[in-house]
Nucleic acid binder design. Sequence first.
DNA 1: TTTTAAATGATAGTATTACTATTTCATTTA
DNA 2: TAAATGAAATAGTAATACTATCATTTAAAA
Lengths: 230, 230
Amino acid sequence: MELQLQIKMNEKLFVRNPEQTELGRKIIQFSIQLIQENGFESFTFKKLAEEIGSTEAGIYRYFENKHRLLIYLTAWYWSWLEFRVTFHLNNISDPNIKLKKLIQLLAANVVDDDSTMYVNESLLHQIIIAEGSKAYLTKHVSEDNKDRLFKPYKDLCSLIAGIILEYNSNYTHPRSLASTIIEMAHLQVFFMHNLPSLTDFGESKNEQLVVEYIEDLVFCSIRNHTSRRD
Amino acid sequence: MELQLQIKMNEKLFVRNPEQTELGRKIIQFSIQLIQENGFESFTFKKLAEEIGSTEAGIYRYFENKHRLLIYLTAWYWSWLEFRVTFHLNNISDPNIKLKKLIQLLAANVVDDDSTMYVNESLLHQIIIAEGSKAYLTKHVSEDNKDRLFKPYKDLCSLIAGIILEYNSNYTHPRSLASTIIEMAHLQVFFMHNLPSLTDFGESKNEQLVVEYIEDLVFCSIRNHTSRRD
DNA sequence: TTTTAAATGATAGTATTACTATTTCATTTA
DNA sequence: TAAATGAAATAGTAATACTATCATTTAAAA
């Protein structure tokens, strides 16, 4: 059985839907490659066009600018991850196991899963770690948010918050804890590789240690939690 | 008594020390204002020069490029914050109180403290929240790190990690928890104001709720912690 | 099969950004 | 008073971030 995963993307994320044409798919494929290799700052539509064998103007027919393309990629990633999480958590009732699987899915390295041929999920995961927060750290977050560009991120966050409440319905900050889990799963991996003294994982470069740290943080917090204030 | 706080900055952060000349201090003062107002992306040396009444080339004599200026500002902020933390925690022995004061200093709004006339600490704090992570989220983190540009951040992290161990010497991830506290103190505030559904603080826009969340997270975690794994 | 529309490619052009080189002017020091 | 040093202005260049036009290819509809 070979299934093709199609993620329905918000229309406002693009000028023309890149999934529907050969050039569009190439834009996604090669932008992931280029951003991962050289970073978002040095990434330009000119370089991308050269890589693809198209023109700058050609790329602009699909995306308003490179920042919109980054938002598209992050939105795609969060949608894909939510699907993955839902899939892996299917039929599991124990919220304890759910949360552990979830943290694993967030912090562990991603293997390109061939569910889409033009998206390399492993590279995309690395982009999210290093560039993901630049999607919302702008002066126009609020407008972008009104256009629902961050909906996939918020949906994933809600999903996680729900599981936290399943585990302990008295927990007072399910959504903040959910966004903390997501962000820390990425940031601690980034720190481990690039600014290791900000972590306790030294030079081990082992994502599994990040998983353990976050599990520890999360479970200590929600296990011992009652609604009282101390 | 009127004291002038002078922070000794790493020489590699600048081309010429901005603290020592009138133009240099204006660069710091007005870059903080401009970045806070319009965001780091739209900030250029040209605009800054116009604001100051100098020229683009004049700014380049102080800073290699705008990213270096951002690193300078963040380094200054972390140094200032470490001083502030050390000052406020002086003579307190109870690590419980220390941690609470610390979280308060990190997440609560900053009031411009007039310790330096050309740095508006309140605006700078807002810059750190929205732009701070862009200082290290680059392809050249590792080289910048070798030049010790992030030392002030790492020093603050160490300081916090030390207090965590004072509280509970069995805690296994003091440094990761320290960087988590720092980052979340900022990110949850950013989310609260711009993507509120990622938090539990809704439209309250009250930094004190972020303080409570982080306190809760931290103390639950280090209070109940023994070195065993579950 | 023809018609028509959509998508692409090629070319050119503009405004802004990021940065450099050169010269001028002022100040210090010998 | 001359030489050396440093600050600032001027004038550039190369790259970036776009936009516009038009010819051509490709795909869908009649």
